[in-house]
Amino acid sequence: MSEESLLGRLYKDGEIIVEEGIQSRSMYVIQSGKAKVVKSDEDGETILALLGEGDIFGEMSLFDAIPRSATVKAAGNTRVLAIEHEGLLKRIKMDPTLAFRIIRQMSQRIRDLNTRLIFAQETINHANNKLLQLNKTENVCIKDRETKLSHIVTQLQEKLHKLTEQFIQGDETLQ
């Protein structure tokens, strides 16, 4: 692949493409490579989604001027094409169907979120029930197990993170 014939801008592994909290109004389409959508807090970074070639991100900025809701970073070398906000709005005004794919992708994301939300809700309910049962039948005091439980949760989180990283790298070596 000739470097001269690539479009957009190249981001190196880990480089930030859009940053949470910063206001900017461009939308992006991945030309080649992968990017991860992450949210950071004091406990570290949670990967919200993994994006691949052809995926659109930053589309929310089309509809509002509020700061970015998450950070998007390159996962490996990633080529990204920026879509200029004003020009796009003008094109959509002339041909509203141009927004179809953006809307389709947003609706897919809402579906995914709903599925994840339901899954999370079920897990919480399940855990609640189990804990209540334990409390009732065996008279176990959860307070005593708090440190152990939190240790298990941290371990699980680390494992999940490692798996995601491996998945990203594995996908890259496949290319």
Partner: peptide, 22 residues
């Protein structure tokens, strides 16, 4: 520029075998 962007939004990304020069 506008067609490259429009096609990308439509899901048609020009591959490097087609693009001779960026």
């Amino acid at each position: 520029e506008s067609l490259v962007q429009t096609l990308a939004i439509e899901g048609v990304n020009l591959p490097s075998s087609v693009v001779r020069w960026g």
